[in-house]
């Protein structure tokens, strides 16, 4: 089992750092899955996260100049590691002006992901900073626990409003209530609502658009015959939503959510090279 990778391009490095920062805001520990083509950050320890789970996927070719991976065995050419993303975030934080960043899986006394940052210096040789991030290697028999979650059979799928506005509103609502109701319909309307003894606040978003999903039988029949105006809703922990929005440092290319009435909200945030899915269950 081997892993070595290198990033030389500063823009790629900064983009990668931003992604790690977002992951670090959502999960205290998570799984890093390495395959030949992709990296995945997975959070599925549901009980510990109040039921929320995360699946983030990136194509290694968009970030790394060198990427060599050998999995546990030929037919299982993957590596699953458990780590604290905050460590990785810290290691990359001070690498903003690096000449190169190398990553390597090592096992001197315990498995570590060694991040070596080569920094410019006034002297003849570069400055090197190494960060040994402790990781746990997940054995193959446990890999099934970390499969990609399927898209739920949702009642409504809708594009999210401008994240900056959504973030401000949710942050204020967080001061007023612990729970928030997200409701949306097939006419591109979404409402965010909180209600307590003291106050009710509802924010109305219009003209958001509903993404077209092809259904399994090849036609978009699920929408026909349904009342386009009727709202599907789910009441969720407002803190989880706020964390998701606070972690977004750059506007995604596409942002949408799928709501299963009173069951779960499934967020999908797509950037050019990375996709993030976040599942927040409804409070019963």
């Amino acid at each position: 089992m081997r892993f070595r990778a290198k990033i030389v391009d500063l823009a790629c490095l900064n983009h990668f750092s931003r992604i790690i920062n977002t992951i670090a805001k959502l999960a205290k520990t998570c799984i890093l899955r390495l395959t030949v083509c992709k990296l995945y950050f997975i959070l599925s320890d549901k009980v510990a996260n109040g039921g929320a789970s995360m699946w983030c996927e990136l194509s290694q070719g968009n970030f790394f100049d060198e990427f060599q991976m050998e999995g546990v065995a030929a037919e299982h050419n993957e590596i699953y590691l458990e780590l604290v993303p905050e460590n990785l975030s810290r290691a990359l934080k001070t690498s903003q002006s690096a000449k190169a960043v190398k990553m390597k899986l090592t096992n001197k006394h315990s498995p570590c992901l060694r991040v070596a940052v080569e920094l410019p210096s006034l002297s003849s040789s570069s400055r090197i900073v190494t960060h040994d991030i402790p990781v746990g290697v997940i054995p193959r028999r446990m890999w099934n626990d970390f499969r990609e979650p399927s898209v739920p059979d949702f009642d409504v799928s809708i594009y999210l409003p401008v994240l900056k506005t959504m973030k401000s509103v949710v942050e204020r609502m967080k001061n007023l209530s612990n729970f928030i109701v997200i409701e949306a319909n097939l006419s591109g309307e979404m409402n965010l609502k909180i209600e307590t003894d003291l106050v009710s606040v509802t924010t109305h978003f219009k003209d958001l658009g509903n993404p077209p999903w092809a259904s399994e039988d090849g036609c978009q029949s699920s929408a026909q015959g349904r009342d386009l105006e009727s709202m599907t809703e789910a009441c969720i922990d407002i803190k989880k939503l706020q964390q998701l929005l606070a972690g977004q440092q750059v506007n995604p290319t596409k942002a949408l959510c799928n709501i299963v009435h009173k069951r779960i909200v499934h967020f999908i945030l797509l950037h050019e090279e990375v996709s993030l899915q976040y599942f927040i269950p409804a409070i019963s």
């Binding site: 290691a91 006394h109 002297s123 090197i128 900073v129 040994d132 402790p134």
Partner: peptide, 16 residues
């Protein structure tokens, strides 16, 4: 726990 803490090391050249 030594296996749980991140270890950071920085090297500076003599001529710096």
């Amino acid at each position: 726990e030594p296996s749980k803490t991140m270890v950071t090391e920085l090297w500076l050249a003599e001529d710096e």
